[in-house]
Write a protein that binds this DNA or RNA. Structure first.
Lengths: 87, 87
DNA sequence: ACAATATATTGTAAATATACAACAAAAAAT
DNA sequence: ATTTTTTGTTGTATATTTACAATATATTGT
């Protein structure tokens, strides 16, 4: 199966928590370069690694990873605000 | 990274939809033996494959795959019924 | 009972993910 | 300004996932 390219928000989420790749890598138990590869979306994580990342950020996998390009979080927020406002 | 064993409900969900491994395999674009391996939990899917399965069943990844052994669906239902009843 | 379909199992080859090392470049801290 | 930390990049090795083939067993349909 040719794997589709997946998108993720690891870099942004990591920045928001103010930790380095090295620190994140240690927590989720991979090499720090592996975090780099993931953030640059050069390859996809295994499902197990996705679960570990999801556990660390305490967010569902679907909020971190996506099959479609991810909008900046700030845009998501604006859209949600509009949606609430418009009813 | 030594991958943890992951658990899944593919076999049950597939039975509920009454499709064969071969049919599911064609839909998600893998070899039918690969579905066998996944159902027997002999190895974990890639994140991309997990997404495809999640898309087919229209269920979040977390409901299909888990890092901890999965209870039968019927038990989950009973627990939820109790939880609702007890408030 | 027989045929057709579905599943299990094993083995080999391929593709992809991960580890690890080394070095360069950029950013942050002092 | 210079040291330290972080990030990017490249290359090689190992582990894991997936494909594919072949065969055996089980299940279902007729």
């Amino acid at each position: 199966m040719k794997s589709r390219k997946l998108y993720n928000r690891i870099a942004v989420l990591r920045k928001e928590r103010n930790i380095s790749r090295k620190e994140l890598a240690e927590i989720i138990g991979v090499n720090f370069q592996t975090v780099g590869y993931l953030e640059r979306e050069e390859y996809n994580p295994s499902l197990d690694l996705a679960f570990k990342i999801s556990e660390y950020f305490e967010l569902p996998i679907e909020l971190i990873f996506s099959t479609k390009p991810l909008k900046p979080l700030i845009e998501e927020i604006i859209e949600l605000k509009n949606k609430i406002g418009e009813q």
